[in-house]
Write a protein that binds this DNA or RNA. Structure first.
Lengths: 356, 356
DNA sequence: TTGAAAGCGCTAACAA
DNA sequence: TTGTTAGCGCTTTCAA
């Protein structure tokens, strides 16, 4: 009550006056550096307590030219929880190191991404993390301003740090599981145009996942069959449930092309969820009649049946991105570091051995 | 390139020197206020452009005693996407009004919540939004510091603003749908102890949803049957897939208690997802044999079959919370405002008329 | 129409 | 061991 009505907020100056010392001394006890006599320290500490002093981080930042803040550019959290989990990881690492994090959502728009970076630069953040960057030039913007940048998932800018996953190997990991279970008629469910690459060159993420599928089959001596791929031209979906509808439609295509399909590798949980819907509608049992493997491990465990999936350590990727940015901050040499995280296969209930 | 190697960053002072005017004049053209002669303005604008000047928001905040920043306390995004969507809404409203948002995750821990608020206060944010607050005293902390606070979903502090939903009415909305379809043997799937209230008094959210179920049945002249409730003592689940496992287990209990159940109202999508898993394992078709209604509309559309659910307008709730905080900022009277958002029933494929 | 100057709250030489 | 002081970059009276 008393606090609330006291309009004047305590400053280092008012505390100094109250304790009968200089502001420099207050600053010293505040940060525990420099020499302060025991008796003086106590007096200052009492004054600090009595006045309800709270350090003004804004003034401190101006003076120190450090905000102890990380800026986080989000590619949009909806509909993919991937970003949310990475964000939580970044936040975790930041707070553990005394940093705070500003977030900015691009909603997938490059112009907004630029605006977000500009905004962060204006606020003098100490580092910027992109999950996921849309344009390399926007990443470069931060670097040109002398601020370390870290990209998560996809690297667009050669001078930024990065935290990635080996998509090719991960995809093979999922395939190996299916192959080990005895499957050979395995369909591939990718983002629109993953297979045809119609919309310009595939980005490496999609390409790598598809390559993992192709090479795994090849190495097992199984020819890649056209009827196990969706070649479009199927329209890019635009809607609230991004990815699910695509999965639903593509699964139908796959089924039409090869009614004897026994397994499917999906390049995201979203796509796999859509596939599960189509299968459910047809009364086709998973994994009894067909096995499904997803990718990401976002909400895979919530589906029916719980989905076997290739897990990306999203939270950990966020943590490492945050730590990397902080590490870069103090390293004048600004090395370009790339950290690679390991994926893991999470076996749940959507895969089973092929029954002959 | 030239920019990058120029270590000296442009300040209002360097711009003033370059344009041959005072810093006051630069400030005037920067903000378009005060009188500036056309010719002078042009000279300053050129200097601004040539030097790549970027306003220092830190210095501005110190001087103006306004950071144009909102602090967002998150109750943890995992495993419930509810928080992520509200967060995006807050961010949207903030950016639309020129604000930035700092985020802080409490992970459901009241002590961390306190630390988060303290951190925000130290950084002099202009407002704090809680999604969802854990302790009223932490909300009060912000208010005592003279900063507006807004609570989303649950209100714990009488002097804070709030954005809520009518849980009782929403629950009845879901029930009405089931009743309209002709169901009468309707089970209730709530959080652990929603029915017994064993862990102390139920918070109003859980209580209201359960009341909606009870009263809807009563008003339809259907007695509330014990076998349609889960009375525990079933252990509170602790794990990565919070809620789903509970839904799975409780659905089994419901099935054991009444094998002739024809419908279930779940108090969250998470619980409904778990129910779907149990049903799938038993080969019980949804909605042919049993209808399910969820709550929230987070990932309901991704389940198989797509889940009919009572939708909370999460993004909109975030937007309104952000706008409310900003509005409160400039209102000296600091009125206590509560905004109530309407839920809506989203009918998908998990509900169907009772077949006699 | 413009400029001088006083700070916002804090830190860190430097001096005492 | 402590204090004095000069700013960090910006805004805003007030005077010219």
């Amino acid at each position: 009550m008393a606090q609330a009505s006291t309009r004047a907020v305590a400053t280092i100056k008012s505390v100094a006056a109250r304790a009968g010392v200089s502001t420099a001394t207050v600053s010293r006890v505040l940060h525990g550096n420099g020499y302060v006599a025991g008796e003086t320290r106590e007096r200052v500490e009492a004054a600090l307590r009595d006045s309800g002093y709270r350090l003004d981080a804004v003034a401190q930042a101006l003076r120190r030219q450090r905000t102890i803040t990380l800026g986080l550019i989000l590619h949009g959290i909806l509909p993919n929880p991937f970003f949310a989990e990475v964000a939580m990881g970044v936040e975790h690492a930041a707070v553990a190191n005394g940093f705070n994090v500003l977030m900015f959502n691009t909603d997938g728009d490059a112009e907004r991404e630029r605006a977000g970076v500009e905004s962060f630069l204006s606020r003098r953040v100490d580092g910027v993390i992109f999950t996921t960057a849309l344009r390399g030039e926007n990443v470069q913007l931060a670097i040109d301003a002398g601020i370390p940048a870290v990209e998560v998932e996809r690297r667009l800018c050669k001078s930024a740090g990065a935290v990635v996953v080996d998509n090719y190997a991960s995809s093979r990991q999922g395939m190996q599981h299916l192959l080990d279970l005895g499957h050979s008629r395995i369909g591939y469910l990718g983002e629109p145009d993953t297979v045809t690459g119609r919309d310009g060159p595939l980005d490496s993420l999609r390409q790598d996942r598809f390559e993992g599928y192709r090479r795994a089959l090849e190495d097992a001596g199984i020819p890649v069959a056209d009827e196990h791929l969706v070649r479009g031209p199927y329209p890019l979906e635009r809607g609230a449930w991004g990815g699910v509808q695509t999965g639903r439609d593509y699964m139908q295509v796959l089924l039409d092309q090869d009614p004897d399909l026994t397994a499917v590798l999906a390049s995201s949980d979203l796509l796999a969820a859509g596939a599960l819907q189509t299968l459910y509608a047809h009364g086709i049992r998973v994994p009894d009649q067909i096995s499904i493997v997803g990718f990401d491990d976002t909400f895979a465990g919530r589906l029916a049946p719980p989905l076997t999936t290739v897990r990306q350590p999203m939270f950990e990727m966020g943590v490492r991105a945050g730590e990397l940015a902080i590490r870069l901050l103090d390293d004048e040499s600004r090395p370009v570091l790339t950290e690679s995280c390991a994926t893991s296969l999470v076996v749940r209930e959507s895969t089973a051995p092929l029954v002959a």
